[in-house]
Computed example of a mutant assay.
Amino acid sequence: MENLSKNIKHLRTLKKLTQEALAEELSVTRSRISSYEENRSSPTIEFLIDFSKYFKLPIDIIVKNDLTKAKDVSFIEVGNKRVLFPIAIDDNNENLIEVVPAKASAGYLLGYDDPEYIEQLEKIKLPFLPTGKHRAFPIKGDSMLPMKDGSYLVAEFIENIKEAKSGYSYIVVTKDDGMTYKRLENLVDEKQSFLLKPDNTSYQPYEVPVSEILELWKFTCSINTQEYEEHELKLSSIINMFNELGVELEALKKSIG
């Protein structure tokens, strides 16, 4: 239960609450908060339920994960609950972009909400990107021509999936189908679903209920790998391509300015 005691203290600190203040909010004594944080006793189920409701975090996240590296921005609202969303930052407190390798993309469905999985992904920084949380994904298949199999897409995380805009392209992560890249039509108001439309007319559109969608990422930019030989497409090569792209565009921006 060591993680739990550290998490109670860390979450309290994130909210800038004293032990006395948190005790008052949860209708317990300060000494109980102190004993839980110092791991001298284990929290009761009743306390965990109240603590979970107060911080709007599922109990399993509080109990299972080490949250001491998480900042307040590491949690996102999903309905009336918050879930842990790992965000990597560099020494200058700037967001880093995790790159999901093609060979491991199938595992993303299992690890997308696991801080340890996200932490082990290679990371890059593209200074020309707009504000927001971005991630780079490999593309499989030819349903979204001219994007071809092997391309990498950088996409921005969408917190409220119901606000996705019709006519734009998104990386869609679903419970059953995993990760796919499609153009969306927002049918939430009428049907509580999205219509996923391939740009390649050889493929048929299909509907996905909102309840099936785990994550939604809006397309920002891409890198086409079709001019490279297969042996050149190691993850390290992909990382270099993105980094070189960032340097070139940053230099262009400065020259125009």
Rank of each mutant, 00 (worst) to 15 (best):
D142C: 08
N65F: 00
L17M: 14
Y203C: 08
S34C: 05
E229S: 08
A70M: 15
E2V: 06
V173A: 10
S74Q: 08
E119C: 08
P198G: 07
A70D: 02
Y168F: 13
L214P: 00
E98T: 10
L196P: 03
F242E: 03
K175N: 13
I59K: 00
I76A: 04
S35A: 15
N95D: 12
G257T: 03
D50V: 03
G178Y: 04
L129E: 03
M144G: 03
V78T: 12
N7Q: 08
W217V: 03
N224V: 10
Q192A: 13
K16E: 12
L252Y: 14
E248T: 14
E190L: 13
E20Y: 14
P86R: 11
N93T: 09
Y152N: 04
R32V: 10
N92V: 06
L14A: 03
S222P: 05
N240P: 01
K15W: 13
T29A: 09
Y112A: 08
L22M: 13
I62K: 00
E230S: 08
L57Y: 02
E2N: 12
A88T: 13
S222G: 10
G132Y: 01
Y203R: 05
R82L: 01
E190Y: 09
P146R: 04
E25M: 06
L26R: 00
E232N: 07
L48H: 02
T225V: 04
L235E: 02
E116W: 06
T13H: 10
I158N: 05
D91Y: 10
M147H: 15
K197Y: 04
P130R: 09
Y228S: 12
V83Q: 00
K9W: 02
N160L: 06
F51W: 01
S31P: 02
S41I: 10
E98Y: 00
E77S: 12
E116V: 07
E46C: 04
V172H: 01
Y152T: 07
K123V: 05
V247D: 11
I161H: 07
K6R: 15
K103H: 08
E46L: 09
Y117G: 06
Y36F: 15
K140G: 07
P205T: 13
K191A: 15
K254C: 02
V99M: 08
S5G: 06
F75T: 00
P209R: 08
